[in-house]
Amino acid sequence: MNDMRVSESAVGAQDVKISARKVQVFYGENHAIKDVDVEILDRTVTAFIGPSGCGKSTFLRCLNRMNDTIPICRVEGDIMLDGEDIYDRRVDPVQLRAKVGMVFQKPNPFPKSIYDNVAYGPRIHGLTRNKAELDEVVEQSLRRAALWNEVKDRLHAPGTGLSGGQQQRLCIARAVATSPEVLLMDEPCSALDPIATAQVEELIDELRANFSVVIVTHSMQQAARVSQKTAFFHLGNLVEYGETGDIFTRPQDPRTESYISGRIG
């Protein structure tokens, strides 16, 4: 626990990117998320922590309507992206997800070449006008994901042939390539070894310059290392939300304190 250093990067006065009000999520009869209010800032890394099954991943998947793919799932309350309700009937989840990208727990590169993996988003959304532009987007995204140097000579090799850490960075590059405004990451390092984890964490910190990043993690150290804001979930409730430094040093709620000190989990 000696690695509990809090990220020193300052949190300035930033715009609110996503604001959630009284969000409820039901899985059939199960009330999975209860009354969650949260404001996620632009150009900030926000971490969701909490014991497994607390609803942090479920809430994350509400932010780009990935829960729509589960038939029994129902979401109530308001989630605004730049002041627009993303659950409005007029909103097309396809357009929304182009703005709110997602990286998953397990690296899931498509069974295509590295190039085609990264080019997938720009192609389906029609973001580039020609091959040269697409090449540039691919290179830029791979550079942002800190993968360019490792794969630039084998862009047409299958993405599934990379190592675990490289695969996850490829998935991040793939998400970055659609130039989203928010990047959701669902335990992006849980399937990675410590070295790969360190690389991805470093990357997350760099991504903050351009995106609002929301990361779900089961590791408190990771939350402390990469995030500026932290939200603690417990049994479907958002228990505490604040500056990462405050949450880890001066938790207000006894449940937060128990979790951070390892008594519940």
Binding site: L81, I86, D88, V91, D92, Q95, K99, Q140
Partner: peptide
Amino acid sequence: MTAPRRSLLAPD
């Protein structure tokens, strides 16, 4: 890459 921001409510 830097397309002007579009509203979510109006599909392109």
